[in-house]
Design a protein around this nucleic acid. Structure first.
Lengths: 119, 119
DNA sequence: TGAATAATTGAACAATTGTTCATATATTCA
DNA sequence: TGAATATATGAACAATTGTTCAATTATTCA
């Protein structure tokens, strides 16, 4: 590891080569941060439900609100988060805004997650 | 949708069949909650870094701390979270506790996440 | 135009989270 | 045994988060 950092225990000396090798293989700080930000979006059951619903069918805001038995406002706030993460897209038809999935990976990420849970 | 719930806009009437169909296909409330809890664990860059490091090599607590330039305590707290989520396991060798990945899906979930980010 | 509808937005609030600090536990070895 | 080391833990703190409420915007249609 960098000589600018303090060795905090003997392991750091003994395992120096292993730690150095791992450090060399780690993705960039930025990529790891973005990855965490993405999973943070999946880490809320309201958003998970919205994504799951949209995986079945395009829906408007008030339909999602009715489906999840929550307020339109709460759903709208969460749809904003999902859109910023480029996980959903929308189209406007008169007063009504229809949302749908904007990513092929969502279903696959869900599938891996479910596999882990049901182990 | 349930007649016990209030229709909050005309869409709920117009789209009734679609919403009903989606409702019928949704996984259980419990599964969706567990899925969100799992992704919540992935939704922190410290934990992402730890998982990524362990995907390369088994490591002890103080090595991870040195690698990420964080305190031993902070790492230990996060390893606890990861262990509760059954994402890492550990073995003790004297004073030293070695942690490693405990799940085959981690790398695949990462891979899907990265695909989305680099779109 | 003006009332009604669908959606968005911003502020506020409680609840949750990640780190730090101090302390406790477990193990080695002189 | 007692000092040193590696890890774990609990309390406390600031920071972040999700929902609610009230108000605003955009659109339809009578």
């Amino acid at each position: 590891m960098d000589r600018t950092e303090v060795d905090r225990c003997d392991c750091n000396v003994i395992h120096k080569d292993i730690v150095d090798a791992v450090k060399g293989k780690m993705p960039s700080e930025e990529n790891l941060y973005d990855l965490a930000e993405l999973f943070k979006v999946f880490g809320d059951s309201t958003r998970i439900k919205i994504l799951w619903a949209l995986a079945e069918s395009e829906m408007c805001v008030c339909d999602i609100a009715a489906l999840l038995n929550m307020t339109q406002s709460a759903i709208s706030h969460q749809l904003r988060v999902l859109k910023q993460a480029r996980l959903v897209k929308n189209r406007k038809e008169g007063k009504v805004v229809y949302y749908s999935l904007d990513d092929d990976h969502v279903k696959q990420i869900f599938s891996q997650g479910l596999s882990h849970i049901s182990e």
